[in-house]
Amino acid sequence: MSRQANRGTESKKMSSELFTLTYGALVTQLCKDYENDEDVNKQLDKILFSHFLPRGYNIGVRLIEDFLARSNVGRCHDFRETADVIAKVAFKMYLGITPSVTNWSPAGDEFSLILENNPLVDFVELPDNHSSLIYSNLLCGVLRGALEMVQMAVEAKFVQDTLKGDGVTEIRMRFIRRIEDNLPAGEE
């Protein structure tokens, strides 16, 4: 690999406080723009059809390419391997934390990511009038978008959140189905 490649794939250092505060600014702005918490949660997670407002899902769709370019991780063989890669490689690379993977369902299609500390909420306290806001919901959208690009449809949601008084932050991931490659229309 050439020198230029190394420069491109090197991880760039950035202040985590700046990151946390920037994320806070994003959530605050969304809270101002939308009437209720439900809509904010949706915006954080969801598909926005504008290229200029890439949040959650849209971030995931692009982030996965960066992840693959930098990590050299190949295709996963099963959902357990995927879970490990998400926790040990992806979270480490982008948030500097390694959540633990637990609570597997017997069928092996659901698991939980337990975040001991969530860097997004370092300076955050939820005001009373935003009790149903899922502050870090962006993460769910990122996970969903990224995995969809590697042919896995998943559902991701917060089931515990330290902001709501729980001891840890827990993201529940559920495998829905494999997305098969299709030949483009009219080529069969």
């Binding site: 690999m1 050439s2 230029q4 490649a5 491109g8 794939t9 390419e65 960066d66 693959l68 370019a69």
Partner: peptide
């Protein structure tokens, strides 16, 4: 791989 990672992705 370089074309993908350093050009397309970047």
């Amino acid at each position: 791989h370089h074309i993908y990672s350093a050009l397309y992705v970047e």
